[in-house]
């Protein structure tokens, strides 16, 4: 069955749908966790520490976090590899472009590939900035995420990179969530309006939730 999935364009789309939904689920939780920044440094930092203690004493310190990280890396890699291979197939299938060009499909649909590349680059920067602190400006302090977030959103480029990436997430989710439903065969003519609305709501809520943090730092609501 694994061979069948990997050998078929429909199978690769299934892998993309499932890995995409895993990442989407993570994003919703991540966004909600970020909003804790509005309750002050103590609660935010305590939440960040709690993330490392999930599952104790059954799990060792940080084990749950590492399990989540492994699942996410697997999802990102599978999603990206399938996207690359399917894109190659799609481009090969239309070797000669039409002379008379027309703007086709929605903006979100047309920008899925660029959006995916933007997001992949963003994830690398985001981890180096706020997880490892390698490219962090203002002195990275492990265990003090509140201050680290303030540092990042006190630089113009930190805000620009983050907000561009968050908009890319919104667009990607808007087409991606609905597409995943079609790929997994749960869409139908009667369910279409519900699925499209759900995709729009997810896209707007994720974008607004993530963007609220840099906006709050820039406007001094969080300081």
């Amino acid at each position: 069955m694994t061979r069948t999935l990997w050998d078929s364009s429909v199978g690769k789309k299934t892998i993309m749908a499932v890995s995409g939904l895993i990442m989407l689920g993570y994003l919703v939780v991540h966004m909600l966790g970020n909003l804790k920044i509005f309750f002050g440094p103590d609660e935010f930092n305590h939440y960040a520490h709690w993330l490392r203690t999930i599952g104790e004493p059954f799990l060792h310190y940080e084990w749950a976090l590492w399990i989540i990280r492994v699942v996410l890396v697997a999802a990102v890699v599978l999603h990206a590899v399938c996207a690359y291979q399917l894109s190659r197939r799609d481009l090969r299938a239309r070797p000669t472009a039409y002379v008379h060009r027309k703007a086709r499909s929605s903006y979100a649909t047309r920008t899925m590939r660029y959006g995916g590349i933007i997001l992949a680059l963003f994830i690398v920067w985001h981890i180096l900035d706020l997880t490892t602190g390698t490219v962090h400006t203002g002195g990275f302090q492990s265990g003090h995420p509140y201050q680290n977030v303030l540092d990042t959103f006190s630089t113009w480029y930190g805000n620009v990179i983050y907000i561009v990436a968050v908009i890319a997430v919104g667009l990607h989710v808007q087409h991606g969530f609905w597409s995943a439903a079609q790929t997994l065969g749960v869409g139908s003519a009667t369910r279409d309006r519900v699925l499209k609305s759900l995709a729009n709501v997810l896209a707007v809520v994720l974008t607004a939730g993530f963007v609220s943090v840099p906006v709050a730092v820039m406007t001094g609501v969080v300081s």
Binding site: T4, D7, S8, S9, V10, K12, K13, L86, R89, D90, L91, R92, A93, R94, R104, S105, T109, R110, M112, H175, W178, S179, Q182, T183
Partner: peptide
Amino acid sequence: VLDMVATMDDEGFGGCTLTGE
């Protein structure tokens, strides 16, 4: 469905990105 999709892939058609065109 398995054989027709496999043949569709073998013939060099692209995949679906649900543009609706």
